[in-house]
């Protein structure tokens, strides 16, 4: 079936490499127009429409696999190309990721019903006194993409808020972000607070942020340090037991 969604066709005009255009077209040709609508709305970050269309697709009998592959991921592939070629920037990528999350909210229960459990549960936030969130948000996008359930506590997160969320969601991984040298010590204070309530052995702590280093992470007692979103996911996978530490380091 040819692609008729004009918005999606317009998005494809951003793809200038012929082999990529052929590949992207092959993702959509032969798939239902509803999947094209989901993809196009994901690309422009229209999360409410992706929400509605995903519900409709499931009600119409499309499989979760089809919606993921032909709608959500196919759309995200175009987002990746537009981002790489500087047609869009980080904020637009994060808006598309939010739209993907809207769709995945309906897929995840079906995964669970099918015996596919999340890789792990992660609590994540920017520490107290710090309002910088873009690195954290990129980590969240990648963690969700890798199959983790992520509870985002946002910015300016106090130690007791981290602890409450760990308990509420029975999470075994905590991620903390800081961009300022003045707020970095609050990571250590949060770890101390976790120790004080006797939960330190139950949760692995990973930290990240521009001013941090492995040495600083070690000093404050963190279990892992990630210098970027890829490392964040790899560390979380090691903590969840789905990747060996040596493999994480070699990627």
């Amino acid at each position: 079936m040819p692609i008729q969604n004009e918005g999606l066709l317009a998005e494809m005009e951003f793809i200038t490499k012929p082999f990529e255009l052929d590949h992207i077209k092959s993702l959509f040709e032969g798939t239902d127009p509803l999947m094209h609508d989901i993809a196009q709305n994901l690309i422009v970050g229209n999360n409410t429409v992706v929400d509605t269309l995903t519900q409709k697709a499931l009600a119409d009998g499309f499989s979760a696999n089809d919606i993921m592959d032909d709608g959500l991921i196919a759309g995200m592939a175009i987002v990746g190309i537009k981002f790489r070629d500087n047609y869009i920037f980080v904020p637009e990528v994060l808006v598309a990721a939010r739209a993907m999350k809207a769709g995945m909210a309906y897929i995840e229960p079906i995964l669970s019903e099918s015996g596919i459990d999340p890789v792990g549960t992660v609590i994540i936030g920017t520490v107290k006194g710090d309002l910088h969130d873009i690195g954290k948000n990129l980590c969240i996008m990648m963690l969700r993409g890798a199959g983790f359930v992520v509870h985002d506590l946002g910015v300016d997160t106090k130690p007791d808020e981290f602890i409450d969320a760990i308990m509420e969601h029975d999470a075994h991984i905590l991620g903390m972000s800081a961009l300022l040298t003045t707020t970095m010590p609050n990571m250590g204070r949060t770890i101390e607070a976790i120790e004080e309530v006797g939960m330190r052995d139950a949760v692995k702590v990973m930290v990240g942020g521009a001013p941090l280093s492995q040495e600083f992470a070690d000093d404050m007692g963190a279990d892992g340090y990630g210098g970027n979103a890829i490392e964040c996911v790899d560390i979380a996978k090691v903590f969840a037991g789905v990747k060996s530490a040596s493999a994480a380091g070699s990627d």
Binding site: S63, A64, N65, M68, D69, I73, M76, A77, V79, G80, F83, R84, V93, I110, L111, E113, S114, G115, I116, L138, M141, M142, G145, A146, G147, N228, A229, I230, V233
Partner: peptide, 22 residues
Amino acid sequence: PVDRSRYEASILRLDGIFRQMS
């Protein structure tokens, strides 16, 4: 029901897209 092997392939593909984005 979700086809597990197809789901795992999807997650790998998405991971590849996100790694390039990173």
